[in-house]
Write a protein that binds this DNA or RNA. Structure first.
Lengths: 344, 344
DNA sequence: TGGTAGATTGTTAGCGATAACGACAAGACG
DNA sequence: CGTCTTGTCGTTATCGCTAACAATCTACCA
């Protein structure tokens, strides 16, 4: 009850405090702390020690206002709870860690209104760039992005027109290629299992490409099953059970993501269904998890890590002036991984 | 090439632009946009339409500087790539979505230096609160947190002294309870499989509690296996194969997380090992994934969602003045879920 | 020894918003 | 009919920092 050791300064520290403590002007302190402009070694040290002993933390709000430069990059993605976006984030962080840029993440839950809110909120902090998932946005969102006057990279998808730059894969093509691979392997009775998500445009595009290419091979999707919410692995099981019950003649199941595919795979193995002879299976995304399954599920790697990296590179390059123009279009090619469940 | 429709204003819009467009003072525009103070309905509408047609996005940097109020909450966590923190984030977002607070996430990769950097960076934006994983921080980090003068909630763990508030479970206790449950089930030869992470204090505490309680039962950990990096599911398989090869007499395997536990479970089932009779298994965390496995892995739910919610509630409450004091200590009780792999 | 380039440090004026207070009009009231 | 509220705005002074320029102080050369 009796510690007069240090009265914690109720008023937060400012440059002035450091300036007074070290006997130089605020400007000089500012220069030292930002490593900008010439400062003699002696005063530099004086300032640095003063700042450290005081425990000074610069106020970036004031700094940003004065210099109209913000080292934040807005990253807007649907969610973090499926395995796809964490990996994108890893790629982004990896690249941004070598710059003075900092990612700031916002979630939309696949809701356009939420996206609009989050975007508005983030833009009001005047970030140096925006990385946003998808090519489909509300009109208001597009207008904001356009008016912001900063680099915008739309990621994941390249089937459409970007506002500025885009990095991703063609989900239509991914669907098509999978369809062709399935047809080539001789499967005829194909079922589709996916999410009940009218707002997941990429899943939709994959499905469109899939059916389109199947049609060219004279095939069609014979049955479908949808889910929403819950444990994806469990849902995969349940949906597989349901669809096979309803359509016993199916010999291939295409899942809209690896997680439900893995559930389906486990279910089939348990039921003694011969995979891939009796029934073939395939998912989408190329999540790391698949490596640990009894059989390696066929999938298509979406290159999520590389998407994150490339998007960050564009933002970083444009922020530091290395890159002049905008409008980059980077299409990565999804890689088919047949695994053990797509061969005959 | 000939669209003189709208020259996109090179200079970003400010309050002044809106003020001029609507014929009122900047102050009034500010009042309207923030819904604060009395403004007549007619001018309110004038301002609102002006702002909308111009596409004005307020500059929170300036606003924050002037009002010294920031609606940001810094959330500092190790990573997003295991299944534990996404769920914590969900809990945080859930609560914060009902306030005007916004989470801003930073990652430390379990590195104290990285934590320090991220913390410094975030504090320099003067957030309204900090939610940070763990009770162990570098001296500098603690000093910063202390000096920041804002609510700080340390989450996940309660085995230690918080800087301010804390919300979590006792990992020592979680380890102890699991040990007791295992002993009670009659298992005698116990193996431990975990991450090679000297910096994961919570895993360490669980292990300490585990061995301590085992000792009281006259038991001890007979063999151990560690890993780092890679696909956790796959690593779980490999480690299980390795430890059983080396110590065939083991009749129980305790995994430091559910993911490697799931890998081990799949491995055992494949090898025809009778679970839980021949060998019992248990993990930790209670991830949703487990529901989809052939057998439900025994685990201990860490209440991650609730941790996130509670932490956010404390921050929100203190930010809006609903809660006066600091130093809250919320200990949630981990729930043992025996599943199908911890019974005899 | 005066002059000048180069290195170092200080001064002044905002950045775009908000807090706090002041001003003014339209009723309310005795 | 003058004074007092209330309801609506406007003015002024920062917030903490940085850009741009000015001022000093060296060192060195003709």
């Amino acid at each position: 009850m009796n510690d007069e050791v240090e009265i914690p300064p109720r008023r937060p520290l400012t440059l002035r405090d450091v300036s007074e403590a070290s006997g130089v002007s605020e400007m000089t302190v500012s220069r030292v702390l930002r490593n900008r402009g010439d400062v003699s070694e002696s005063t530099r040290e004086k300032v640095l020690t003063a700042a450290k002993t005081l425990g000074y933390v610069p106020n970036k709000i004031a700094g940003a206002l004065a210099s109209s430069r913000v080292n934040l990059v807005a990253v807007i993605i649907p969610s973090m709870s499926n395995m796809v976006f964490p990996e994108v984030m890893t790629g982004i962080s990896e690249v941004l860690d070598n710059t003075d840029l900092q990612p700031v993440v916002g979630f939309t839950n696949y809701l356009p209104e939420k996206e609009e809110q989050v975007l508005f909120e983030m833009l009001s902090w005047r970030p140096s760039g925006v990385i946003i998932a998808g090519l489909e946005h509300s009109e208001a969102s597009e207008a904001m992005l356009l008016a912001a006057g900063i680099p915008v990279v739309e990621i994941m998808d390249v089937d459409g027109e970007p506002i500025d730059a885009m990095v991703g894969i063609s989900h239509r093509r991914a669907g098509r290629e999978m369809a062709r691979a399935i047809a080539k392997s001789g499967y005829k009775n194909i079922g589709f299992l996916g999410t009940k998500m009218p707002l997941d445009h990429r899943a939709r595009k994959r499905f469109e490409g899939f059916t389109e290419a199947l049609a060219k091979e004279g095939l069609e999707v014979m049955d479908r099953e949808f889910y929403s919410g819950g444990s994806a692995l469990l849902k995969g099981r349940e949906m597989t059970a349901a669809i096979l019950e309803r359509s016993p003649s199916l010999d291939f199941l295409y899942y809209s993501n690896d997680m439900i595919g893995a559930g389906g795979l486990l279910y089939c193995l348990e039921k003694g269904i011969k995979v891939p002879e009796q029934i073939g299976l395939a998912g989408f995304n190329g999540v790391e998890l698949l490596a640990g399954l009894p059989l390696k599920l066929a999938t298509m790697d979406a290159g999520r890590l590389e998407i994150g990296r490339e998007a960050a590179r564009i933002i970083a390059g444009r922020a530091d002036g290395t890159i002049e123009e905008g409008g980059q279009r980077v299409e990565l090619t999804p890689k088919l991984e047949p695994g053990d469940t797509l061969v005959r």
